[in-house]
């Protein structure tokens, strides 16, 4: 892409934003408008800005983002469903100088992988956990997840989530924030430009804390799933604002004391 362009009326303009070079050229397989893609972009932009491409190792989950390693041009490892933070633990312990992150959906992190998630955080592993909470199992056809909202209609709760039978949505980020060994726990989103800017700051801080060996950083990104929610991408933004954020309020849950 050109560095400079001349507008029709002769004004010279300079390139101020481009696709991060830490992404591969492979087009995303994600559905149109899916937050997964936005979060991949932001994550890789931070890796480019911090100049840590060679030191970074990611762990991909099972779920829609199972192919994250096709897009993120850093070293990556695939983990069995739910075990990404355990695999990331192993990688970090063997190679403590690397910057390690796991990238996981809510079905992966807060259902089948709950034990791994909690114990990774309880051990204070010096890694970053990126948690994509779209309230649903996206990949397998939009089934109810532990994070689905009360009354939320999914393919396995066609009359809405009945909390008297299946309990309340699990706020695992709040749980993780209670553990003494976690260092930085925050809940972000990627649904508008300002949210993306804040998410970028949160990811940047987390990698910096990891360089300073501070312990577990945990970033939940309250996300959409246009296909699973059966909405257009634009409709999902409204649903996020009106329905998801009131239950999963955005902001820091635990910030370093000093």
């Amino acid at each position: 892409m050109e560095e400079k362009l001349i507008l029709e009326d002769g004004i010279e303009v300079e390139q101020v934003y481009r696709r991060p070079e830490t992404l591969t050229d492979v087009p995303y397989h994600y559905c149109p408008g899916c937050s997964h893609s936005v979060v991949h972009n932001v994550l890789m932009e931070v890796v480019a800005d911090l100049g840590i491409q060679e030191q970074t190792i990611g762990v991909a989950p099972v779920g829609c983002s199972v192919f994250a390693y096709h897009y993120m041009n850093v070293d990556m490892q695939e983990a069995a469903h739910g075990r990404a933070s355990a695999v990331a633990t192993g990688i970090k312990r063997v190679m403590p100088d690397k910057l390690v992150f796991s990238y996981q959906g809510d079905g992966d992190l807060a259902a089948i992988g709950t034990a791994e998630t909690i114990h990774t955080a309880n051990r204070g592993e010096n890694i970053l956990v990126v948690f994509i909470n779209n309230g649903i199992y996206g990949m397998t056809g939009g089934q109810m997840a532990p994070t689905s909202l009360p009354g939320m209609v999914t393919s396995t709760s066609p009359y809405g989530r009945d909390v008297s039978m299946v309990g309340y949505p699990l706020k695992i980020t709040e749980l993780v924030a209670q553990l003494p060994a976690t260092y930085y726990v925050t809940r972000q989103s990627a649904h508008n430009p300002n949210a993306v800017r804040k998410l970028k700051k949160a990811i940047t801080k987390s990698f910096e804390y990891q360089q300073q060996k501070k312990g577990t950083c945990f970033i939940e990104v309250v996300s959409n799933c246009p296909s699973g929610w059966k909405m257009t991408p634009v409709e999902t933004i409204k649903y996020l604002e009106e329905v998801m954020f009131p239950y999963y309020p955005l902001g820091d849950l635990k910030v370093p004391k000093n």
Binding site: E8, E12, V13, E14, V16, P20, N41, H191, N192, V196
Partner: peptide, 25 residues
């Protein structure tokens, strides 16, 4: 339209990272 200000908002939210933005220095 030619009223674009190069604010990069569109590029930040583009899931496909498909937008390159230019701005007058």
């Amino acid at each position: 339209s030619s009223a674009c200000t190069g604010c990069i908002n569109c590029a930040l939210v583009c899931p496909e990272a498909a937008i390159t933005v230019y701005r007058e220095p």
